[in-house]
Write a protein that binds this DNA or RNA. Structure first.
Length: 361
RNA sequence: CCAGCGGUAGCAAAGCGGUUAUGCAAUGGUCUGUAAAACCAUCCUAGGUAGGUUCGACUCCUACCCGCUGGACCA
């Protein structure tokens, strides 16, 4: 695979790529690049964290990039997830890995690294302090966005340390590409900025798109000017069941949530239904068929997302037809995962355990 | 450690020793071959915790817990 082809894959993953030249240069030198993502094991897993995440990792692997997945158990602990119960957090972490396996992710080619192990490395905490030394408190607090908090929240000291840990993770995992969601942008930029000063490799950043909530945007969100703020305000939320499709949703739940979802006719911006087609369905199926009754125009098929988008914008597809077909495809995506958990005893035990836990925000 | 102020439903925010706060969210309905918007209805055990006063406490008193602000101590 040529460097150009690899870069193309990277651009498929990233809605934003920072430091593309740096990535390219390293590839041309023949260096094996390391990318990473991290996640807080915190309750349920929605379709973006599960299925879409697996697709993106697979693409990075395809581009010949070594992928490390940091299971941020200590971060989740610091952020009061699962009531701060590390045992539960670990079980949730193991469960997430099972979900990715079920999604067909080639887990043998991914390095799963637990934060609880990483923090034992020599001088990890010294590096956290070093990050702290070169970062003002205000800037660190602004980074609280990465853990789903805002600067107006009453943050604990552990939460203020969290971004410093995450920057340290980037350095300790020897990351060339920080491949996380748009919501993680602020730390990645911090890490880029301080890398030279602290004597670490400067990471490039490939930020993937955040799927927007199925619920309609409120006026408050509409009025937010800052692009990043908007993205974060609009994203799906684990704590709002109707805002997202979960990997564990039943067929009925999928149809119901999609039916209730926001979907303005002819509108292609901020339309969650179209987003699902773009980011979930088209990457999985080369061609999709919108089935509908003859009286509404009969079946139509599309080979690319942009064709579908154009048709929708022109009013050639009625929102409900789009929705019902989306539900069908989503169920096709999730059904094998359901079966995996039904048939695999160990996976099922993890899932049952996770579902018995009370989720804390 | 001390003082002042505060803690009310998922969130925000009032009054009141007895009689519906309210807004947003949520849920149901009407209207559209979806959703949204609009309109109507619903929201069940709201009152930090434990006691006390009282016929009756979210409201008054005491203690404790938590938060905010300021101060003291230390340096």
């Amino acid at each position: 695979m040529t460097v150009e082809e690899k870069m193309k894959l990277i651009y498929q993953v990233g809605e934003e790529v920072i430091g593309a030249d740096e990535i390219k240069a390293k590839m041309e030198q023949g260096k094996e690049l390391i990318a990473y993502d991290g996640f807080e094991p915190s309750g349920r897993i929605h379709i973006a964290q599960g299925f879409v995440r697996a697709l993106n990792i697979q693409k990075m692997l395809e581009a010949g990039i070594h992928f490390k997945m940091l299971i941020a158990d200590w971060h989740a602990f610091a952020n009061n997830k699962m009531g701060g119960d590390l045992k539960k957090i670990k079980i949730v972490g193991e469960y997430f890995i099972e979900v990715w396996k079920a999604c067909g992710l080639d887990v043998d080619r991914v390095d799963f690294i637990w934060a609880s192990d990483l923090v034992k490395k020599p001088n990890y905490w010294l590096t956290v302090l070093k990050v702290g030394r070169v970062t003002t408190l205000k800037r660190m607090i602004r980074c609280s966005q990465i853990m789903g908090r805002s600067d107006s929240d009453n943050l604990t000291v552990a939460q203020i340390m969290y971004p410093a840990m995450q920057a340290t993770d980037i350095f300790y995992l020897k990351v060339d590409i920080a491949q996380l969601g748009m919501d993680q942008r602020k730390v990645n930029m911090l890490a880029r900025q301080i890398a030279d000063e602290l004597g670490y490799e400067k990471p490039a950043a490939v930020h993937h798109h955040m799927l927007i909530s199925l619920k309609p945007p409120t006026d408050v969100i509409q009025n937010v000017d800052d692009k990043l703020e908007r993205t974060i305000a609009l994203k799906m939320s684990k704590s709002k069941p109707d805002s997202a499709i979960f990997m564990t949703d039943t067929k009925e739940e999928i149809y119901e949530k999609i039916k209730k979802a926001y979907c303005p006719p002819n509108e292609i911006l901020n339309n969650p239904i179209l987003e699902y087609f773009r980011y979930v369905i088209f990457p999985k199926f080369e061609k999709i068929v919108i089935e509908r009754k003859d009286e509404y125009g009969g079946n139509v098929s599309f080979e690319s997302y942009s064709d579908l988008e154009n048709s929708y914008q022109d009013g050639k597809i009625f929102p409900l037809d789009l929705k019902d077909n989306l539900s069908k495809y989503l169920n096709d995506v999730i059904d094998p995962i359901r079966k995996y958990f039904e048939n695999n005893l160990e996976a099922r035990r993890l899932k049952d355990a996770v579902e018995s836990f009370e989720v804390t925000r």
